[in-house]
Amino acid sequence: MTGAPNSGSAIHVDALSKRYGRTLALDGVSFDVGDNELFALLGPNGAGKTTLMHILCTILRPDSGVALIGGFDVVKQPLAARRRLGIVFQEPSLDDRLTVHENLNLHGLVFGVPRKLRRQRIEEMLALVELTEWADKRARTLSSGMKRRLEIARALIHDSEIMLLDEPTAGLDAQTRDRIWSYIGRLRNERQITVLVTTHYIEEVEGFDRVCVVDHGKVLALDTPEALKRDCGQQLLRIVPKGEDNRQEILTRYADRLAGEAGESILLTSDDAFVEALLAEYGGRIRSLAIEVPSLETVFLSLTGRELRDQAAGARESTLAFGKRGGEHTR
């Protein structure tokens, strides 16, 4: 297969592995994303989502396994794959000193979009993300939500058929997040486009076609949100025992039901009969009790055994902070 893409799936990932030193970031991940599908990769930070994204956008080589973008191998035919990709990275990647329009124009030039089409696309995409009035403002003057919108517009200037969005809504307020999803929805009505999104906001993936839950570099579940809730959705009981001794007792007694621990509270898999039994025995020794009906949140908890964790600041962040403090010749 030299030029013609394999028909079928827009993104094909087969047994992909990547190791960083002793950590296995990706451990034999396989899945397919169909044409025009809205596909979510859901997982806590450090689950391997971004590693997977970097492999898909051809800037990282996998140790083993195959990844195809529109039928093109990301390792063997990276240029052909890139031409089909529209990417929004987790970290902002705009040039702050250029204007909104210049940022889009640069992207068009770099992706070889002819002048006439470039102009037309820039106008269309600015309109889509409602930034037309900001076209001549420097990118640095935009709010973080507007920057994100601009990056989405940018990813669509060339003939992108497959959009990869890495945590597109992280750190944004609820209103901006809604807007971003509405742009993506509108876009999918106007243009044939496959969208792969990574996120750790569970509530956002309800409207997706399919959701893939990953953790520790492995695919834990892959289905429509409804099916996931039906199959993996386990009713959970969240209890906070009074005192340490009660806590230990409950933990040993129901060790087989333990679904996770979060701070003071204990999560147990449960059903109606179990709740009654537990209340009869420990009713007086529990400070609080909540029944969590199956939602994607509980699906996630029962699959990964934990809640979504937060990220620690690394070396990169500290250099970034230097720049933000006004380090020389940065922006």
Binding site: A4, G71, R83, R84, L109, V110, G112, L117, D159, E161
Partner: peptide, 30 residues
């Protein structure tokens, strides 16, 4: 994906022209 539809205008350009356009873009940015 297999349909030529929207990809046509870019695909028709010669690769050299694309590279030179991009070169100009990056130069202009600097």
């Amino acid at each position: 994906m297999t349909s030529a539809g929207p990809t046509a205008p870019t695909a028709r350009r010669s690769p050299l022209l694309i590279q030179l356009g991009g070169l100009y873009g990056i130069w202009l940015r600097e």
